[in-house]
C-alpha cells in the first residue's frame, strides 16, 4: 500500500472555552477507561474526546480527512491503543501537536496515523483553517492564512511504517 505524502484537511484546534489550546490532554479524556472493552475499531470513533469538556460532540462534528491540532503534552497517561484508534475510526488524517507523550507518539506512528510535533502549530492555526502537510519536505502550509511552518521530518523507519499503513504490515 502506497500512501499520499501530501495531506490536506480541515483543522480542529482543541481549545478550552476561552479559546486556549488545552495542555496535557490525557488518554482518559481522549478515550475513557470504561470503553476499553471495545475491540472493534469501527465502534471506537463515537467515544473520541468523550471525557473532554466541551468536546464530547467531536465525533459528530469531525469529518473524514480532518486534522486535529493540539497543545503541549497530548496523550499523557495510559498506553491504550484505543486513544489513537478512535481517531482512525473517525477518519482523522493527521494529528499535529506542540508535543506528545512518548507512548502516545509511538502508538500513533505504529498504527499508521500521521502524527507531527510542531511547537508553533497552535499559534498559527485556528479551527476550520485548511492545512496541507508535506511529509517529504517537513512543511505545513496553512492555506487559509498563507503561513508556512516547518517540522522535523519523520525518520525513514517511521515513513516506512506510515507508507505500509502500520507497523504490523511491515
Amino acid at each position: 500500500m502506497e500512501r499520499e505524502t501530501i495531506i490536506r484537511g480541515k483543522a480542529w484546534v482543541i481549545t478550552d472555552y476561552k479559546g486556549n489550546p488545552i495542555k496535557d490532554i490525557d488518554t482518559d479524556m481522549i478515550y475513557h477507561n470504561k470503553y476499553l472493552g471495545i475491540t472493534d475499531i469501527n465502534e471506537m470513533g463515537k467515544y473520541a474526546f468523550g471525557n473532554l469538556s466541551n468536546w464530547e460532540d467531536f465525533p459528530l462534528k469531525a469529518k473524514e480527512g480532518d486534522i486535529i491540532v493540539t497543545g503541549e503534552g497530548f496523550g499523557q497517561g495510559s498506553s491504550r491503543q484505543q486513544a489513537v484508534d478512535c481517531f482512525i475510526s473517525l477518519g482523522i488524517s493527521a494529528i499535529v501537536g506542540e508535543s506528545f507523550a512518548p507512548i502516545y507518539l509511538r502508538n500513533a506512528i505504529n498504527a499508521g496515523l500521521l502524527i507531527i510535533a510542531c511547537p508553533t502549530i497552535t499559534s498559527n492555526v485556528i479551527t476550520s483553517d485548511i492545512l496541507e502537510i508535506d511529509l517529504e519536505n517537513g512543511i505545513i502550509k496553512n492555506l487559509s492564512s498563507n503561513k508556512t511552518l516547518s517540522f522535523k521530518k519523520p525518520h525513514e523507519i517511521q515513513m516506512e511504517i506510515y507508507r505500509a499503513g502500520g507497523l504490523l504490515r511491515l
Binding site: 491503543q81 489513537v84 507512548i103 509511538r106 502508538n107 505504529n110 498504527a111 502500520g166 504490523l168
Partner: peptide
C-alpha cells in the same frame, strides 16, 4: 504505561501499546 517502574532496578523498561507488543 508504568512499565518504566523497572528503572528502579536499572532495567530499561517501557510501556507501549498493543501494536508494538504484538510486533
Amino acid at each position: 504505561s508504568h512499565f518504566n517502574i523497572l528503572g528502579s532496578v536499572g532495567v530499561f523498561g517501557i510501556g507501549m501499546g498493543d501494536i508494538d507488543i504484538a510486533f
